[in-house]
Design a protein around this nucleic acid. Sequence first.
DNA 1: CATGAATGAGTCTTCATTCAT
DNA 2: CATGAATGAAGACTCATTCAT
Lengths: 178, 178, 178, 178
Amino acid sequence: MRADARRNRELIVTTAADLFVERGPEVSMEEIARAAGVGVGTLYRHFPDRRALVEAISVDALQRLLDYGRAVSEQDVSGWEALRLIVRRCTELPLALATSVTGGSALPGRAELPGLVQAVNAELEWAAARAQREGTLRRDIPAREVIALISVAVCRPGARIDDPLVRVVFDGLRATGA
Amino acid sequence: MRADARRNRELIVTTAADLFVERGPEVSMEEIARAAGVGVGTLYRHFPDRRALVEAISVDALQRLLDYGRAVSEQDVSGWEALRLIVRRCTELPLALATSVTGGSALPGRAELPGLVQAVNAELEWAAARAQREGTLRRDIPAREVIALISVAVCRPGARIDDPLVRVVFDGLRATGA
Amino acid sequence: MRADARRNRELIVTTAADLFVERGPEVSMEEIARAAGVGVGTLYRHFPDRRALVEAISVDALQRLLDYGRAVSEQDVSGWEALRLIVRRCTELPLALATSVTGGSALPGRAELPGLVQAVNAELEWAAARAQREGTLRRDIPAREVIALISVAVCRPGARIDDPLVRVVFDGLRATGA
Amino acid sequence: MRADARRNRELIVTTAADLFVERGPEVSMEEIARAAGVGVGTLYRHFPDRRALVEAISVDALQRLLDYGRAVSEQDVSGWEALRLIVRRCTELPLALATSVTGGSALPGRAELPGLVQAVNAELEWAAARAQREGTLRRDIPAREVIALISVAVCRPGARIDDPLVRVVFDGLRATGA
DNA sequence: CATGAATGAGTCTTCATTCAT
DNA sequence: CATGAATGAAGACTCATTCAT
């Protein structure tokens, strides 16, 4: 893929993500193209249809999250702190969108999405398991459920790391002895 | 209002609420009408446009919730229990929808909505305040914030009273001494 | 026909005529009914469909014009003056409407309209012919054409007897010697 | 603007004008598109809504009239003859439509219409003033009113240069000495 | 017999997608 | 290869007309 084509692709994905966040899920393809400074034709050259674009946004966001998560894991931070860091990053990415897409059925032949979701979850579960071993995270909820829970709390449009909801969720997850 | 008209109106509101919950916010008016067994014209006679219909659904749900909340308050239950009961009822009503509407600007001249939201909130705050006095609910979060928090947790599409999220929220709200 | 029914009918016809003049030809049947203070059902009881109503307005207006024209003819006024009087009356009646209807095809089985148009024309032609004999109206245009001309000048929406157009038409029709 | 787009635009404007003249102001957009041999989408790409289309027709007609009027003025014809020529051209253009539009309020930001009307009127007034100086047009009516008058006579649906109405108007405007 | 609720065909308009330039 | 014009299916909404109350 040529350098300019790659740049266009990037540009479209990030522009579209921003537009979806700012103006809801009904932005038109035309508008996305205009905001990205390209013609619709170009948009469709990169993404055969709307779903492909939305999926690309998700893949992009999940990829960034995964990169970040792995970087964090290589750092020397506690499991609990890792969870918090990753969750903060979640709120900075268009993951509400990603989630709504994940909820739907993935396009056949485009299997990146489930794999990425899997990988991100693995990263989070590992952090959660560590935190449980460290005694900071409740042990009566399986790590898998902890993650599901955090996902719900964080993958809402407009979620922020210091939302009352997110704060209380972390309080609720804190091991009672801690 | 004639008896058959009232019946149709009810029918439309409940059918539409169900459809919105099942199939998302983009169901077409035509489809709603068909599901309710009436013509589009009838739909539009009762609700001048889509927004009016959605608003009516919210008003209806909030009204039911308020009725229930007041009935609960007259019962001899603890504040904590009242909270749980009201919250359970929330999950049975299309309040995710209601909330998304409340977020938008109310239609001019149709001031029921803010009033209802107010009234429901008052009911919930009263239960929360009682629970704080009873020593079962954390006192370091103002009752008002507790409600905001619960609203966020409960007014998601598909929320259930025994969701992990809702369970953890309640755990997080429990007074540490309790 | 009962007295109240006749009164309703009258009411509807005049109300509708006013509305058509004020707000153009697209007023809805519902609105006409509301303005007349009756239900749509009543409106439809009197007029099987929209065309019938519009036709009734025309018949009504032409009938009034004919009555007036005959009254004028029985008076002792000159042909020229008669023309002016009748024309003034035209501008007070919703004849622009009437004309647009006449232009269309009359409803089968409702032959009043052509007859009335005929009768009114006859009255006008007679006045014109008298004016020609009196030497006040140009003789080089057949009376029939004079009438056609006046009709065009007068049966416009918003026509008034002292419009520049109408004034010049009368000037142009004046016998040069007069 | 691409060549094919311009061609389509032209095609739509003229087709629509014809249809409006032939079948009245209620022709559907669908029908206009079909008659022009394009899809509705194309129609709407060129004209964001019905009003814009009607306005474009008017602008188009007035522009042609203005071009013609200026060409006539550069010819060596008398004021009276210029008036007649311009008026004949009026009857060949969909100016009845144009006029009905002019009557309504112009779209904000689309100020061509008032300007064009102004320009055409200026052209006509200049011809009228010349005719008055030449002694062929009555001097007791201000040129401006003469134009208003001619406009009324000519901007009717179906007006023709040799209508009795138009003929008599010109007769009525002729200076009595001429 | 009046009323106004119900009906549904028809209108305007939008937008994902295709295709000529 | 980018562009943006063309397409038409689909949705929101209106209104003449019918029919239950």
